Computed example of a mutant assay.
Amino acid sequence: MSAAFATCSVRRAGPADWDAVEAFHLRCSEQSMHRRWGRLRIGRSHWLRLLRASRCWTASVPGDGVIALVSIGRLHHSPGVVDLGVQVADTHQRRGIGTGLVRLAAGHALAAGADTLSVYTEQANVPMLGLLHRLGPACTLRDGTHTELRLPLAGVTSHTSLFPHEDGHAPTSNDRHA
Rank of each mutant, 00 (worst) to 15 (best):
A114T: 07
R94N: 12
H46M: 07
G96N: 04
I67G: 09
G63T: 02
R44G: 11
R134Y: 02
G63F: 04
S78H: 10
M33Y: 01
T147M: 05
H76M: 11
L131P: 00
P15K: 05
V66H: 06
V86H: 01
R176P: 00
T58L: 15
T172E: 08
T121L: 00
R103P: 01
H169A: 15
E122M: 13
H34S: 09
G136F: 01
V82E: 06
Y120G: 01
V61Q: 10
H165Q: 04
D90F: 00
S118V: 08
E148D: 04
D143G: 08
W47E: 05
A23F: 04
T157H: 05
P164W: 07
G168C: 02
S45G: 06
G100F: 02
V88H: 00
R52E: 15
D175L: 00
H108I: 13
A23C: 04
W18K: 04
D64G: 10
V102F: 03
T7Q: 13
G63Q: 11
G100L: 01
A16T: 06
G168P: 06
G136L: 02
D175P: 01
M128C: 11
S2T: 14
D83Y: 00
G107R: 15
G136Q: 09
L151Y: 05
V119I: 10
A20Y: 04
A68N: 09
A124Y: 02
E30W: 06
A138M: 04
P79E: 03
M128I: 12
G155T: 08
G38I: 10
V156H: 10
E30S: 12
L75C: 13
A23T: 12
A138P: 01
W47K: 02
A4D: 12
Q87H: 14
Q93C: 08
A111H: 05
V156M: 06
V126G: 07
V156Q: 06
S161K: 04
L84E: 01
T99L: 04
D17N: 08
S54Q: 05
V81G: 08
F5H: 11
G80K: 05
L101M: 14
